[in-house]
Amino acid sequence: MGRTPPSAQDLRNRQRISTWLFAICFMLVGMIALGGYTRLTGSGLSIMDWRPLTGMIPPLSHAEWERQFELYKTIPQYKILHDGFGLAGFQQIFWAEWTHRFWGRLMGFVLLVPLVWFSITGALSRGLALRLVLFFVLGGLQGAIGWFMVASGFNPDSTAVAPVRLVLHLCCAFALYIAILWTALSVRTPRPVFIPAIPEARRIHALVWAICILVGITVIAGGFTAGTHAGFAYNTFPLMDGHLIPQGYAKLHPFWLNWFQNVPAIQFDHRLLATTTAVLIGVTIVLGLRTPQLGKDVHAALTMLGWLVLLQYALGVTTLLLVVPVWAGTVHQTCAAIVLTAAIITLHRLRGVGRP
Rank of each mutant, 00 (worst) to 15 (best):
M1N: 12
M1V: 15
G2A: 14
R3W: 14
A8D: 15
D10C: 09
Q15H: 13
Q15S: 13
R16F: 07
I17G: 04
S18G: 00
W20R: 03
W20H: 06
L21I: 05
I24H: 00
M27L: 14
L28E: 11
L28K: 06
L28T: 09
V29I: 15
G30T: 04
M31E: 08
I32T: 07
A33N: 03
T41Y: 10
T41I: 00
S43N: 11
L45D: 05
L45R: 03
S46D: 03
M48V: 11
D49R: 15
W50A: 08
R51Y: 13
L53C: 09
T54C: 06
L60N: 09
A63T: 10
Q68N: 15
Q68R: 15
E70L: 14
L71E: 13
Y72H: 07
Y78E: 04
L81N: 15
D83N: 15
G84R: 10
L87I: 09
A88N: 10
G89I: 11
G89Q: 04
Q92C: 12
W95L: 05
E97A: 02
W98D: 01
T99K: 12
T99C: 12
H100D: 02
F102E: 07
W103I: 03
R105T: 00
F109Q: 15
F109M: 15
L111C: 08
I120C: 14
T121F: 00
R131E: 09
L138R: 04
L138H: 13
L141R: 11
G146E: 03
S158M: 13
V161C: 01
V161E: 02
V164T: 15
V167E: 00
V167G: 05
L168E: 14
H169M: 09
L170H: 03
L170C: 07
I178G: 14
I180A: 13
S186Q: 07
R188Y: 01
T189L: 01
A197H: 09
I198G: 01
R202E: 07
R203D: 08
L207N: 12
L207W: 11
V208C: 01
C212G: 05
G216Y: 11
T218P: 05
A221S: 11
G222E: 02
T225W: 04
T228F: 03
T228E: 07
A230L: 04
G231E: 07
A233I: 14
Y234M: 13
N235M: 07
M240I: 04
D241L: 10
G242A: 02
L244G: 10
L244C: 00
G248L: 07
A250H: 14
A250E: 09
L252R: 08
L252V: 06
H253L: 11
W256Y: 14
L257S: 07
N258W: 12
V263K: 09
A265R: 09
A265S: 11
I266E: 06
H270A: 10
L273K: 09
A274P: 00
T275Y: 12
V279D: 00
G282M: 08
G282I: 03
G288R: 03
L289F: 10
R290N: 05
T291L: 06
Q293K: 12
Q293W: 04
H299Y: 05
H299K: 05
L302G: 06
L302S: 00
M304H: 13
M304I: 10
L308H: 05
L308A: 02
V309W: 06
Y313P: 03
L321M: 08
L321H: 07
L322F: 12
V323L: 14
V324H: 05
A328N: 08
V339L: 02
A342F: 02
A343T: 03
I345W: 02
R355A: 07
R355G: 08
P356D: 13
